[in-house]
Design a protein around this nucleic acid. Structure first.
Lengths: 224, 224
DNA sequence: GCCGGGCTTGACCGATCGGTCGGTGAAAAC
DNA sequence: GTTTTCACCGACCGATCGGTCAAGCCCGGC
């Protein structure tokens, strides 16, 4: 079937699955993303696929398994997807590549991404939730490693590494809430803009004499 | 009742409401935040309050009204809350105050915040959803005004104003996903750190000669 | 022709959903 | 002392939930 590639959109790493399974995963991801896990019924999924509800249970044992294939099956690959797109070079450029690659992943698997990061952020299944957090941690720790590299190389200031990672990931993770695929910029372009802002800062070149309302933040530009 | 102040925690601008109503709103917000709107039943709310389900319908006409009081009733005040905490002074310091005030709001009305920004991001009620977006827009436009001020004053570079606003709001809006109230930093302190990172940038003072992988980003520090 | 097996279905189940109803008991109003 | 008011409850409703099941359909191998 020629539509396999389009149906595959939004569902990562499901190469061995049949077209029907891919269709179910794609539709389910889209529904989970827009109406949430509890807000999406098995009847909704069946209707969206144009099949009977029983058929869902032929291909999946229950609703949770569909969730698992959508959410866990997609976050599984994020770390590998991004890691393979980090080039050799200066650490700061690795961070930039990290952001762009994550944005590309978001663009490619948008519904699964939203379903995974929004609809299921509080997973009823404890062990599966933990597993997802572990993967998420591995992803985040990878970024922290890049940040530490950049600090060691003297490319960026001696900032708080976990907090810096959170800032970078926040800019990417919140994108799904305002990104409009019909508007101008691609997620990758947006990631580049954010990298520029975070890396170079908003402040203009001239040092503007700011009234130091917070004495603890003087001498910021001197360090390192 | 002396516990009125504690029960009021997490529910903004409900001065005229009775203790019981405040309790219901607080518990509902907490449940909505952790289990989502569809995932929280009226029985759950009643059980959490230690009352019968019927009593919920005595105080509220239906589940949606509870949602409205939690989500709409809290986002209503965010703009005013923040606006009143912006001091006179340099525009960049206004942006800093904006971030700190938003973080304070998050800390004070955490459950209602999470319920409003996460559990209900796709509101089934169209008109109410639009109303919330309008309020959200007013809040965001207020920030954009501050950014434009800072650009006009020459304090920050000639960046893309909407995109800059999104970056700042992303750092704050994503906080609820990783913030741990038992850990060290307060939301306000986190907001200050993020402001420092975004305003001053991560880059170290020394100009590191980066291989220009992106020719469009040369001369960045020259502008303005 | 027919037969076996995977894809597919509609009828159905107990549980739970949001919501309703009639009523209780105590305090306020008269 | 009677009536009105109001916070509150247990029982119940139709609808929908996730999930089951026996039976049909379709198609290649014999």
């Amino acid at each position: 079937m020629t539509e396999l590639s389009t149906m595959k959109d939004g569902v990562a790493n499901q190469a061995e699955a049949s077209d029907r399974v891919l269709q179910i995963l794609a539709e389910a991801g889209r529904l989970f993303a827009s109406k949430g896990f509890e807000g999406t019924s098995m009847r909704d999924i069946a209707l969206a696929c144009g099949i009977s509800k029983s058929l869902l249970y032929h291909h999946f044992s229950n609703k949770d398994e569909i969730y698992a294939r959508v959410a866990v099956g997609s976050t599984l690959e994020l770390y590998l997807f991004v890691r393979d797109r980090i080039p050799d070079g200066p650490p700061s450029q690795k961070i930039r590549a990290f952001m762009v690659a994550t944005a590309e992943y978001f663009r490619r698997y948008r519904w699964a991404w939203i379903a995974s990061t929004t609809a299921f952020w509080n997973d009823p299944d404890r062990s599966r939730h933990k597993e997802r957090l572990t993967r998420r941690d591995r992803f985040e720790n990878f970024l922290r490693g890049l940040i530490q590299e950049a600090i060691d190389a003297g490319e960026i200031r001696k900032v708080d590494v976990p907090m810096t990672g959170r800032l970078i990931l926040s800019s990417l993770n919140w994108m799904h809430r305002w990104y409009n695929p019909n508007k101008s910029a691609t997620p990758e372009q947006i990631a580049e803009i954010f990298f520029d802002m975070i890396f170079n800062g908003l402040r203009s070149g001239e040092l503007v004499a700011l009234p130091s309302a917070e004495p603890s933040r003087t001498g910021r530009r001197k360090s390192r």
